[in-house]
């Protein structure tokens, strides 16, 4: 594994890890690690550093939906042009081009069911080339990015000498 790959794996796991800590863990110099991170940020390999929040633990009402979207690809631009017209909306959290029975998976968040429904009917369905949608509301998040949302019970504390 190259230094950059190792750095990326560590930052993907915990982006608060400092260059000094990464350098110690990898047996590299802090300067080399900082330089590599700067390059990775500059070429957009590292796109950002974001926190993971379980909004269900707060009073905030958040509705997440996964929408299957069927479209007619456009001559010349294929799926990209139409994808861009969808993902530019602030409500769209993630979007993927799919193989199989439909074309895009669009994940959107809103404050209420009605807000999400409005987005689909008023904005998404009316885009040129969109020929069908199916909306699935997410009822509960169990795991995202290798992180489990539930409190995992811990085994009884023990004092054992080993």
């Amino acid at each position: 594994m190259t230094l950059k790959t190792e750095i990326l794996k560590l930052l993907e796991k915990d982006c608060r890890t400092t260059p000094e800590q990464i350098a110690a863990m990898l047996g590299a110099s802090e300067a080399a690690v900082s330089a590599a991170i700067a390059e990775l940020e500059a070429d957009k390999t590292i796109l950002g550093y974001k926190g993971m929040v379980d909004w269900d633990k707060t009073g905030e009402e958040i509705v997440t939906a996964l929408i299957e979207v069927k479209v007619t690809p456009q001559r010349g631009d294929g799926f990209d042009r139409i994808a861009e017209r969808i993902y530019q909306f602030e409500e769209v959290e993630s979007m993927y081009l799919m193989s199989g029975a439909y074309d895009f998976t669009v994940i959107i968040t809103g404050r209420t069911l009605k807000e999400v429904a409005n987005f689909v009917s008023a904005r998404l369905s009316t885009i040129d080339g969109v020929i069908g949608t199916a909306t699935h509301f997410i009822l509960r998040k169990y795991k995202e990015k290798h992180t489990v949302f539930e409190n995992i019970p811990v085994q009884e504390e023990r004092m054992i000498f080993c």
Binding site: E157, R158, M159, I160, F161, C162
Partner: peptide
């Protein structure tokens, strides 16, 4: 030593080899 530790649930343990 373990008796001391038992009364410190907030301690960081680098003690148990597991």
């Amino acid at each position: 030593f373990f008796d001391l530790l038992e009364n410190m649930p907030d301690a960081i343990s680098l003690g148990i080899g597991e």
